[in-house]
Amino acid sequence: MAVADLKRLIAKVEDLPTLPRTVLRITEMVNDPRASARDLARIITDDQVLTARLLKLVNSSFYGFPQRVSTVTGAIVLIGFDAIRNLLLTTSVFDLFPSRTSRDRRHQESLWDHSLGCAIGAKAIGEVLRYEKLEELFVAGLLHDIGKIVAMTLLPEAFARITRRALQDRLLISTAEAEILGCTHADIGRLLAQRWNLPAKLMSLIEHHHDPAAAGAWAVEASIVHVADILTRALGLGSGGDETVPSLDRSAWELLKLKTGSLDAIMATMLDEFDDIGSFLR
């Protein structure tokens, strides 16, 4: 992509929708040490859709609580402020990119399915590694390819050329993107994350999910998303726009100290949770 085109893309990113006001207010509140669970619940319950989604999620297999959680305050106390913010962010992002045509819608749904698979995979790997903030991994997995959604929305013709080229010549989509756009979905995702003022860690995971070592202090989390991305492709959950499975980054695998013996359990979880969790996000 020429410099002028890249600038045009950046300008278009500025036109992208911002996050819903409720999610922004919740993000502010999560960072406010004086805020209580009741304060947070009041904001969430003002939005019926968010309330319904939150309760559905808290009662899904994602958490697997033995008893039904019936109040927003109860959900907040159980899973914590950060988790609430991340989960509401997750459920809101799906609404922000309307498709123009039925073909776009199919592609977009397929991409979201891939993202959802990666999110579930990242969480499943986190469970095996006993990582503490599982919902953080889930959100990173869900948003790792957000740059593709942006490209599809803002540059539909170019994105169609990219996927065509990737499929015809068995290229990875990032290779085709670099050829046609001069940048990749990881770069575009970073631009959007900046636009949305997402946390620096999440921005880094989106930017470096193909080269996790470059995420520096967050290399472990980036490696988890990277491995989850590969496993999602292996299982054919949705489509990232190309049809080949790329090589796994050796340093990422070694950093996580995962064993191949864990792969079956991780993949079984991914398949089990894909339909369940997907039902309230789609």
């Binding site: 499975v245 079956d264 993949m267």
Partner: peptide, 27 residues
Amino acid sequence: EGLKERFADVVADPLMAAIMQAAARQL
């Protein structure tokens, strides 16, 4: 066949072969 097609470029790598086998079993 679907898995073989997807993994055609990387299956020589033992780690990728292990991933393919695990995916095959689960699917």
